[in-house]
Amino acid sequence: MMEILGIPAPVFLGQLLLGAINGAFYAVLSLGLALIFGLLNLINFAHGTFYMLGAFVSWLGLRYLGIDYWTSLVVAPLAVALFGIVIERTMLKRLYDLDHLYGLLLTFGLALVIEGVFRQLHGASGQPYAIPSALSGGVNLGFMYLPVYRAWVILASLVMCLVTWLIIERTKLGALLRAATENPDLVRAFGVNVSLMITVVFGFGAALAAFAGVLAAPIYSVNPIMGANLIIVVFAVVVIGGMGSIMGAILSGFLLGLVEGLTKVYWPEASSVVAFMVMAVVLMVKPAGLFGRNA
């Protein structure tokens, strides 16, 4: 059997694939987190909750309303975005003039409430979500077996990240967003409704997280705490990448997923902490993060 670096190829590539999938989720989540942070100066603790909500909305939709996976992929992010917008308009908005720590504390409280409510209603155990028929099965690539759904998750996340990146870096709207991130007051003085922009960006960030949640539903079981543990790793990703850079957030997401996958091959016990170890090393060597401009 073919080997890669002393490991049977299917095992090695299998773990790498798992790593890439986790990396895809990290990338989509840290992208949204970085967008929100840029414009709102807010570390959104509820980001993992939005991810969980995305998965739950699609599970509930399928179960009670018969909404299929493909419709969910659009509807769930929209629903969560709407929810995020309500949160921003009613609560976060009051905190912009205060110490930024309050935003973190508020979203932490929100995460507790929402997750608590879902645990109360649905218990802590996971609910299965079937892979849509069009994406079930797999392809034998000769050197490994590739489940179609996993390939789809990676592809969909990549496309979502790239489209977002293109919008931000290459469009008029993106230029406004970058400008408002640097100097919101001046952009206001140009006649732009920055408050509206903030609301939309928060909604969009929430939608991204929910999109990742819908993608995740058929892979992991849908449960109320699926986002809570993930978000802490995503925080590490964001610290590694440096909050200032959109591309940095995307790249470090995928990179960290792959590093985790490799760690599972060579040192399985460390795979759950490798993200934090990488973060500690990056902080010691390059405090601003791999792609960050300054701390």
């Binding site: 929100l110 507790l112 409430v113 608590g116 409510v117």
Partner: peptide, 12 residues
């Protein structure tokens, strides 16, 4: 889970 919910509400 009520404790968690109440804690979250107090935070908010």
């Amino acid at each position: 889970s009520v404790t968690t919910i109440v804690q979250g509400l107090i935070f908010i």
